[in-house]
Design a protein around this nucleic acid. Structure first.
Lengths: 121, 121
DNA sequence: TCCTTGTCTAGATGTTCTTCTAATCAGCCG
DNA sequence: CGGCTGATTAGAAGAACATCTAGACAAGGA
């Protein structure tokens, strides 16, 4: 129940030039869109930002859940969406489950959005 | 019929540090999520990439519509979603309507996703 | 003026998403 | 072993979304 994630991303991570330089083809768009869709919810965006900015590079579900007004299973569902989009990965360590970001996937999304000349920075 | 778009973005464009540096607060997440959601559909992603990469910095609806398998009104609907997310803007010029990207909004999204030290790569 | 072409709006329909409660699975400790 | 806490899965209900057809509006040419 967690295999198809890999498939999606291997494509997408290796994917694309900035939008400003070349139009995406159909398959590139279909690889990238699910990742953007996963970011298209405020709860998931906050979860991802908590995970990405956490000290040590990973965050425990137990620390994140109390910061939201929704139920535990709902948080679990959103984490699963992020996981299946290839943006994060998690593993159990003893009692708790820890999530960390997948920098390559995030980097790919950022690269696609990059305004033409990042080199100038 | 094109005023409320501006409202959303003024916030969001000025928004946020990279995810890796600080967790988003609730209002930042709620400003950014609709933009990512707008990108979360392959058709909209292709439309945006056509507009952004078009010569002259803008693209005519008449050139984009034939490249998709869906009806004209469906394309129009997706352009409206991108418009209301503040990612593009359009205006009629004679018979045709031309769309152009809003670089500040795209830049804001890219900045949020930016992985902290791309320099290390 | 009327007709044609390009684009958008309105309304309907089937699908997908978000969230909940209830139940299940995994690890820890007495 | 038995019970406890943490997290996920299952299933259901309601909201939101993508798409279509039909109709309306705008601009240009005969």
């Amino acid at each position: 129940m967690s295999k198809q994630l890999v498939v999606l991303n291997t494509d997408a991570v290796a994917c694309c030039e900035p939008l400003a330089q070349a139009a995406l083809d159909v398959s590139q768009a279909e690889s990238l869109a699910p990742m953007f869709k996963a970011l298209g919810d405020p709860i998931r965006l906050r979860l991802l930002s908590m995970i990405t900015s956490a000290e040590g590079g990973e965050a425990c579900v137990c620390d994140m859940t109390p910061q939201f007004d929704v139920s535990g299973p709902t948080i679990s569902h959103h984490l699963k969406v992020l996981r299946e989009a290839g943006l994060i990965e998690g593993d159990r360590r003893g009692t708790w489950i820890w999530y960390r970001p997948m920098p390559a996937a995030l980097g790919a999304l950022a690269a696609v959005l990059a305004v033409s000349q990042p080199a100038l920075v």
